[in-house]
Design a protein around this nucleic acid. Structure first.
Length: 617
DNA sequence: GTTTAGGATTCG
């Protein structure tokens, strides 16, 4: 045993971590929450790193001293942690700081100087460390999506989360739960910033500077836990605000014209790394910001002009003055468009709020997101559940048309299920050729039965005869093919009408529909898209046989692959389980037209000449 | 000396 000072540290690759050990690690920051005051006594920072083994490690770092937590500015930064304890949480290794924890942080950009950011004094840094940082930079450049380029205010879009690098010009207390920050980055937003009402005397900052830069200055409201942080920020300091949220609002001004303004919110909580961090001088992003401030377009700070829809329609057309899409780095379809236009590319974009104020007929190009979460299976479940409360009538069982068999479930509140096996000339066909009617079945049961029997019709008992359910429900199910009827045009006939069908016709959806008085829906995708671009919401119809989805509507019922394909497209347009804000953008052409509904005039919108982008299908 | 949080957007 010798007491020679440690001159070289061993760094454990992230795929070799064992619970209960204390290790030294290097990694690229994949996610982080800037230090914030925890509910306990310490500041907390959550940092997820990854290394060349492609294994991730989430670290919980606590300290009573804000400065001693890693000085991470953005995703892609490289960190070195010494004396990190590895524990196991939810069956995964997790890092947590322990006595003697120390960190260094480096910019992750290839070629940038290797200068550690740290509060540690007398830290050890060798040529081997230098190499380690360089190696991680090289690896990250091909394995980590390039760290999000700086989003400037001229690039921001309505309805977006992004990180903003800016200088603080003014601040003011608004109320207990919100605080106003006035900031700028030298560029001008595509829509004028909202102005948060405050009492003049509470604004801290240079009023003449704020006045001079008013058209380059935005108002940000920060809430809840961020208020404390905001209070102590120094006017003039350089900041990064993480996961700032934009929202475009249409506000009626005094003269009744609508004025659009862009709101900036830093919501409460720390989800997605929401927070504020003061950037130190010498940071390359601060240098870049300073250059932008110096070269700020002073013509952009000419007298105020509200963008007014009735007078300056043209000003509204472009959502981004730079014409570029947001640089916040996510999948292609989230920032570009999941759809492409097949014609009329000359049309410029119009915000929905402007379209809603115009007369029909018109043609517009829009960029919006689907708003609805598709309730498809849920609504089928609901219709079937409703139908199952209807008590099957034993008088309607075992007729000349069908043989019936009834069950009562024991563990489901005595739900009764009746299956009626439709006969052919008094004889039951083989199950693979048999049409059955089902009362009280669940979607799972119906799906299962449809794989055994040729066709399934969900029914319920009514006064005289069985009848089909709500036409929101398929009237006929054949394996995975769901056949729907038109709610408006169908005039339902009793189920006994099936007895007029010949054997082969019993299995044909069009024949079944005809005798039951159902007008089958034509093979056209008919959908209502609720489109939202942050300025307004518009309901547009899509009536499409093959163009939009590039799937022939007539073929989809019979083709599993096409159905899967369609599901994928729909899931891509409105991914289940995520918020609308993160849905992909859709660029669409819509045309407006007038309809008369009784005495009421109404404007409707239909999507045309738009198709789902090919690289997404 | 212990707890904090344990990534996974607000709803103002």
């Amino acid at each position: 045993m010798s007491l020679v000072p440690v001159t070289s540290y061993i760094y454990t690759p992230l795929n070799q971590l064992k619970g209960g050990t204390v290790v030294n690690v290097y990694g690229v920051v994949k996610f982080f929450k800037p230090p914030y005051l925890s509910k306990g006594t310490d500041y907390c920072s959550v940092v997820t790193i990854v290394d060349q083994t492609n294994v991730k490690l989430t670290c919980l770092l606590f300290s009573g001293n804000y400065e001693s937590l890693p000085i991470i500015y953005k995703i892609g930064d490289i960190v070195r942690f010494h004396r990190l304890k590895i524990q196991v949480y939810k069956n995964e290794p997790q890092g947590i700081n322990c006595a003697g924890f120390a960190s260094l942080t480096f910019e992750g950009t290839l070629g940038a100087p290797v200068i550690p950011r740290t509060s540690s004094k007398g830290f050890n840094f060798t040529p081997a460390d230098h190499k380690m940082v360089e190696a991680l930079r090289v690896w990250a450049s091909t394995h980590i999506s390039p760290s999000s380029a700086l989003v400037q205010l001229c690039d921001v879009q309505p309805m977006q989360y992004f990180d903003l690098t800016c200088q603080l010009l003014g601040k003011a207390e608004v109320d207990g739960t919100s605080f106003l920050l006035k900031v700028w980055d030298g560029t001008r937003t595509p829509f004028p910033s909202w102005r948060v009402l405050i009492q003049d005397q509470v604004l801290e900052g240079d009023p003449s500077q704020i006045q001079r830069l008013q058209n380059l200055t935005i108002d940000i409201l920060v809430y809840d836990n961020h208020v404390q942080v905001a209070k102590y920020l120094k006017v003039g300091s350089f900041l990064r605000l993480y996961s700032l949220h934009t929202k475009l609002q249409s506000v009626n001004s005094e003269n009744q014209a609508s004025v659009l303004s862009l709101e900036f919110h830093l919501h409460g909580g720390t989800s997605y790394g929401r927070g504020i961090r003061v950037l130190s001088e010498g940071n390359s992003d601060v240098d870049q910001l300073k250059k932008a401030l110096e070269s700020a377009d002073l013509t952009a700070s000419l007298p105020p002009e509200a963008i007014c829809q009735s007078e300056h329609e043209d000003n509204l057309l472009s959502l981004s003055s730079s014409g570029s899409v947001s640089l916040y780095e996510v999948e292609r379809c989230q920032q570009l468009s999941a759809t492409i236009l097949t014609d009329h590319q000359y049309l410029e974009k119009t915000p929905i709020c402007a379209i809603l104020k115009q007369k029909a007929p018109q043609r517009h190009r829009i960029r919006a997101k689907l708003r609805q979460e598709v309730p498809y299976e849920d609504s089928l479940h609901r219709i079937l559940q409703d139908a199952a409360t209807n008590i099957p009538d034993s008088k309607l069982q075992n007729t000349s048309l069908y043989d019936s068999k009834a069950w009562t479930t024991e563990d489901q509140g005595g739900r009764t299920v009746v299956i009626h096996f439709v006969k052919n000339n008094g004889i039951l066909p083989l199950s693979s050729e048999c049409l059955i009617l089902i009362e009280g079945g669940t979607l799972e049961e119906i799906t299962k039965l449809s794989s055994t029997f040729h066709s399934v019709i969900p029914v319920k008992s009514s006064q005289e005869d069985l009848e089909v359910l709500d036409l929101s429900m398929p009237f006929l199910i054949q394996e995975k093919a769901h056949h729907y009827g038109c709610k408006q045009c169908s005039h339902l006939k009793p189920i006994q009408s099936l007895s007029s069908l010949a054997e082969s016709a019993q299995r044909s959806p069009s024949s079944v529909a005809e005798v039951l008085g159902i007008v089958p829906l034509q093979y056209v995708f008919v959908m209502t898209f609720t489109l939202d671009d942050g300025t307004g919401v518009l309901e547009a119809y899509l009536m499409d046989s093959d163009k939009f989805f590039q799937i022939p509507a007539s073929k989809i019922l019979a083709d599993d692959n096409l159905q899967t394909h369609m599901d994928m497209i729909i899931n891509m347009l409105c991914p289940p389980g995520i918020k609308v804000d993160t849905y992909p953008w859709l660029e669409c052409f819509i045309k407006s037209y007038n309809i008369t509904n009784g005495t009421e005039q109404q404007i409707c919108y239909q999507i045309f000449d738009t198709t789902v982008a090919e690289d997404l299908i």
